[in-house]
Design a protein around this nucleic acid. Structure first.
Lengths: 267, 267
DNA sequence: CAAGATCTATTGTTCGTACATTCGAATCAT
DNA sequence: ATGATTCGAATGTACGAACAATAGATCTTG
């Protein structure tokens, strides 16, 4: 991997002024390439630098940066420069993330009853997490409450090698991903959630204090770091008190609102 | 409402060059105002027209139009001009829309068994649709099949005054919104879907040929034309053969994929 | 030393200009 | 009439220039 600011010669690919592709497009490609190669970890070139480095006008340089910002999260500040926004730790980790946030923002106190936090063996989950069947897995089972009312039952499996630093954590008030980041330096890069309707088994229904004959959601989440499986999580959410809601509308001529599902508490 | 191209004098609000707000921003506001007032039904002013009308440079005019395009769906064509993209009839009508599309794109033949297509009275739904309780409602009940396999049970209520032209339609292969648009000239502008897990009542479970003890999704959709309720629809989807799936990923530095749920068939 | 003033770097806004590219209509030649 | 050519309109690309606004560093001064 090349060094950052170093001009090693092969660093900069000159633009092709005879190409039919616009200069700004070539510059976008070039900057994208360098960004992905790890350049500009901190700061992007200034307008002036782009002008002299690539021999374009400021207009063209700015145009390229503007369009680059459609793919990358860039922040420009007068007097300072252009920066790649640091990867946020609070990734949009699917539906559950926004849900717990919404609950919090409505003023309800969240906490969890930790029902298990241990190392376990499980052949089936081990297979899914791509670890040897006889290796231990970190297992965390929590009953999540909002103002003391059961909301969901959360069961998490992770390879023990990755989750070892979390063993001693008190998960009563702590978010898993925060702990993972702070104690193990791990942040998931990819995730998937699958949502099914289920009839919870009696023991779970009792835990969640659900009325008899009510259905629930199961949300199965899988996360990865690159290609490496990090986590499998099964969450059972009470279906009688929560729903997924999607709204859309279209002002005449205006952009249509993308349908986006939100898990919300029922009144 | 003012006429379109007519320059009636109050049509054009001049920009304030002493304002701290950039000219392009003022121009965006002005064009937004006029768009919402029904101007430019067909074509937006050309760069040249904006320059002379508002006394700005082409750069500024183009900048304004570019940013206007972030709120409105604009199409610019060399040699032709700038146009407001016509409201598409195939609105992103929530989750179900993409679901039936996905099924179709996977090659499965869809059709419906029309179980009821009639006028009915229903006090509760009438209340919801904001019509007099003793007025009739258009009621359509369909069992939706993919390659002959039951997928979902669909029940639709609409005010009869709006849906009258649909009474004679054969809904075996026809999409409701297409019919509404073609025969009644009606297109919903707003919608909401709420998704719950349920245990279907035996008669419905039998219709959907669901295994005993399986749960299902109910999707309640409400649509409006402006503020006027158009439709209430209850759809019961087999939960053992379908799921909502949401994926997200984050390239380093790249825009995070918004979590978006899709209803998909299980393999 | 500290508070204020000044300078420098960097992005934001705005003007002007020129030519390229594409579309559609008008014109011309056959 | 019909096909090819030309022309005008409109957007796309690219250059140059100037000044404004902001942040941070440096300098000045009490």
């Amino acid at each position: 991997m090349d060094n950052d600011g170093a001009r090693t010669g092969t660093d900069v690919m000159p633009l092709d002024r005879s190409s039919p592709m616009p200069l700004w497009a070539q510059l976008v490609d070039e900057l994208t390439r360098r960004l992905k190669a790890g350049h500009f970890a901190e700061r992007l070139p200034t307008d002036q630098e782009l002008m002299t480095t690539y021999g374009v006008s400021r207009q063209t340089a700015r145009d390229a940066v503007r369009r680059l910002g459609e793919s990358f999260r860039l922040e420009r500040h007068r007097g300072k420069g252009t920066f790649v926004r640091q990867a946020q730790f609070e990734l949009p980790v699917g539906i559950m993330y926004s849900w717990f946030q919404a609950i919090e923002s409505q003023g309800a106190k969240q906490d969890s009853v930790v029902r298990a936090c241990e190392l376990r063996q499980d052949v089936i989950v081990a297979e899914e997490l791509a670890v040897e069947a006889d290796l231990p897995l970190f297992y965390l089972e929590r009953l999540r409450l909002a103002d003391g009312v059961p909301l969901a039952l959360d069961r998490i499996w992770m390879p023990a090698v990755l989750a070892a630093p979390l063993m001693e954590t008190d998960f009563t008030h702590t978010a898993l991903y925060d702990e993972l980041r702070d104690k193990a330096g791990i942040v998931p890069t990819r995730g998937q959630e699958t949502i099914h309707p289920v009839i919870p088994i009696p023991s779970v229904a009792r835990l969640l204090e659900m009325p008899k004959g009510a259905a629930a959601f199961t949300i199965v989440r899988r996360t990865w770091i690159g290609d490496r499986p990090l986590e499998r999580r099964d969450t059972i959410v009470r279906g009688d008190r929560h729903a997924f809601v999607s709204s859309w509308s279209q002002e005449p001529g205006a952009q249509a609102t993308e349908p986006r599902l939100k898990l919300v508490a029922q009144t």
